[in-house]
Amino acid sequence: MLTVENLSKRYPNGLLALSGIELRVRPGEILGVVGGSGCGKSTLLRVLSGLEPPTAGRVTLNGTDIASPREEIGFVFQEPRLMPWLSIRDNVAFGIRHLPKTEQTARVDEALQRVGLADFARCWPRELSGGMAQRAALARALVGRPSVLLLDEPFSALDALTRYDLQDHLLELWSYERPTMVLVTHDIEEALVLSDRVVVMQPGPGRIQTVATPALPRPRERTDPLFEDWKHRLLGELSRSFRDHRRGEEAFPAAAI
């Protein structure tokens, strides 16, 4: 269980990026996080990963505090962030160098197979397309068999077709070990296709506005009228969050934040 209690995060420059976040993510759950630009989605994920310390509140995984990056937490960034001097195979193996050689080889082979890059193991990162590079980054994060996978707008730099493909692919990858996933996205459809629950965030300072539980059968179909229905509901929530935010700004000018 991944729990967030009364979490606030203030950056050293004084900006309050998150305030009073409460969350409980069940093992194996896929949690979507949507919200406008700058409402603290990346900050939340970075605190969950242990890359940023919280200013107040607690973040725990199975009862122990997340104070720094941990083996059982994987992270997929918006960009692939592959090491350009390593082959795809060595990039995927980057995080499991402490394992025995045979175990490494077996796991990397399996991960490359699963993301469909087995034929590209010996290529340099510069020889891959954006979607392939992001699949390699997924393989790198999953090869250590994390129980929690954090994804920060992992597909937002890709074209729509590749994005659809990778969304399906992500579900397939999830189905092997069923890690808990927290997926930040600004794409409501993406959140609805993937998530069990969707957190809608509100800016200034970043808070949770609502948590929606889309009652949609899996596999989710983008063309399902119910899907369209949920999309509109979430869109409504999102635009409400912005309206509230703007009204808030009128009441408290920016300096008060």
Binding site: S49, L51, F75, F77, R81, M83, W85, L86
Partner: peptide, 27 residues
């Protein structure tokens, strides 16, 4: 900085970070 962060996410120690990220990147 983003590559260094990947190193942090995989919990590289100081010397490991130098050997596996900083050294090849500056080569």
């Amino acid at each position: 900085r983003k590559l260094v962060e990947v190193g942090r996410m995989f919990r590289l120690s100081g010397p490991q970070l130098v050997w596996r990220v900083l050294l090849p990147a500056t080569l």
